[in-house]
Each structure stands twice: as structure tokens, then as C-alpha cells.
């Protein structure tokens, strides 16, 4: 199986605080990988490091390599904007711009040079269809995006990311602030996108990781404790810390 992202000896520090400690992890192309672990385990830091978004935080130091299709994204000659276009991050609390639904999704394509209204309309239709929002919003494209429900906002932000045609999607805390119905719809979206995109998402819900992911990586205190097929890790964890976490003895 082809590897989309290959993390090698990745360490991230915020000032003197160690967020990730020498993490090694491979993420296969077209798969969904769930990052699980308690709060402060380093899930968000790992996601941000996979697209160099961590550099936007003050005092961050990153050591090690992240290979995207065998190219180290931390090389000096790399165009960071290009990397972020290829590997798109949807943060824990997605923030739509105070614009219409149309302009929100058109933001990325316009930045990358798409100007024609018809071309933009096609991109928007395709992106909304992929996240299951087209039927709900096709007649409300000029509506303010911030008036949407939290679940719709999250899917809109995924659609906005898809509009720039990334190869990988990184989603920080899949169910953050969503009710069970909105979470289920979001899971459906990811199951549909899996295969076309490489997906890495952080979650606190074991059932969700079980339903959506092909692979699971358990992090604790900045270290990768265990990584493998979801079924294997959940049924036969190799490390007792993983077992404690997924069985709820420790959270």
C-alpha cells in the first residue's frame, strides 16, 4: 500500500513544553487514520505538524521529518502554502468567514486563481455534494454562513477545504460541539470521502474511531504508544496503556 504521509522522528516543542516526542507514523494513501488519546496527548500538535500549521503558533520548534509522497515538507526549499493546499487542516472549532455560503467555499479557489463564476459554481456544487450539503443549501448559497447550524458549519468548512482539491484532510476533533445526529452525518461524510482522500482525524470517541477509521494511533503525553489496524488495536492491543485507554480505565 502506498504511503501518503510518513512521519519520522517528529518532535514538537512549544517553548519548553514538549508536545510531541520522537513520533514515527505512516499513513497509507486513501485510508482514514484516527488519532486517539487523552487531552494533551499531542493529537492536535501532530495534525498541525503534518501540514506545517504549527508554525503559526509562537515559540514552536519542530524537529524530524514529515514526508508527503516521499518529499520532506520541512525542507528549506518547500513552498509552505503549496503543502497546506495539498494537506488541508480543519481545526477543532471551524470558523466560517462572515461571508455567504458561496463566498466561503469560493475563498480558496479564488486565492488559487479561479475567477470565473461558472467554474466557481461548479466547484461549489461538487464540494457541497461531497459533504452532503448541496440539497440543503443549493437555494441558500447567498445566505450568511455563520447562520448555519454547528453541524452544517463543520461540513461547510470541510467543503471549503475540498474546494482547493487537497490530497489529504486533517480533522481536529471530529465531533467537537456537535449533537449525535450532526456527528453521524459527519461520520458519513468521512466514510464517503475515504478512498478519494487520505484522512487523519483526532477523536475522543472510541466508537467513532471504530466506525470510521482503518488505522488507529494511540498517543499519550506526546509519545506514540501504539499504531495499527483499527480492528487489531481495538481487539488485541499490544500495550497495556492502550488497553486501559480504550476500555475506559483511563481517559
Amino acid at each position: 500500500m502506498a504511503i501518503k504521509l510518513d512521519v519520522r522522528g517528529l518532535s514538537v516543542h512549544y517553548g519548553t513544553l514538549r508536545a510531541l516526542d520522537h513520533v514515527n507514523l505512516t499513513i497509507p494513501t486513501g485510508s482514514a487514520t484516527a488519532l486517539i488519546g487523552p487531552t494533551g496527548a499531542g493529537k492536535s500538535s501532530l495534525l498541525r505538524a503534518l501540514c506545517r500549521m504549527n508554525e503559526l503558533w509562537e515559540g514552536v520548534t519542530t524537529l524530524g521529518q514529515v514526508l508527503l509522497d516521499d518529499e520532506n515538507i520541512y525542507s528549506r526549499h518547500i513552498d509552505v502554502s503549496h503543502i497546506r493546499r495539498r494537506v488541508s487542516l480543519i481545526p477543532r472549532r471551524p470558523v466560517p468567514f462572515p461571508l455567504s455560503v458561496f463566498d466561503n467555499i469560493a475563498y480558496g479557489p479564488r486565492i488559487h486563481g479561479v475567477k470565473g463564476r461558472t467554474e466557481l459554481a461548479n466547484i461549489i456544487k461538487k464540494s457541497l455534494e461531497k459533504v452532503g450539503l448541496w440539497k440543503e443549501l443549493k437555494d441558500r448559497l447567498e445566505q450568511r454562513a455563520i447562520d448555519l447550524s454547528p453541524g452544517q458549519k463543520q461540513r461547510l468548512c470541510v467543503a471549503r477545504a475540498l474546494a482547493v482539491e487537497p490530497e489529504a484532510l486533517l480533522i481536529d476533533d471530529l465531533a467537537s460541539g456537535l449533537d449525535s445526529a450532526a456527528t453521524a452525518r459527519m461520520e458519513d461524510v468521512l466514510l464517503n470521502l475515504k478512498g478519494d482522500y487520505t484522512i487523519v482525524f483526532a477523536t475522543h470517541t472510541m466508537q467513532q474511531a471504530g466506525r470510521v477509521s482503518d488505522h488507529v494511533a494511540y498517543l499519550s503525553e506526546g509519545a506514540l504508544i501504539e499504531h495499527g489496524d483499527t480492528a487489531d488495536v481495538f481487539s488485541r492491543p499490544k500495550d497495556h496503556r492502550t488497553e486501559d485507554y480504550i476500555t475506559g480505565r483511563f481517559s
Binding site: S88, V95, G108, H112, C157
Partner: peptide, 17 residues
């Protein structure tokens, strides 16, 4: 909000854009 900047850069926009 700083989130606007991060959202924009996450979509591949440069700092200038």
C-alpha cells in the same frame, strides 16, 4: 480573530494573500 488567518493559511493562502 486569529482563526481567520489560520483558516485562510490552511487553505493554502500565503501570508500576503
Amino acid at each position: 480573530p486569529p482563526a481567520f488567518r489560520r483558516e485562510s493559511q490552511a487553505l493554502g493562502a500565503t501570508r500576503w494573500q
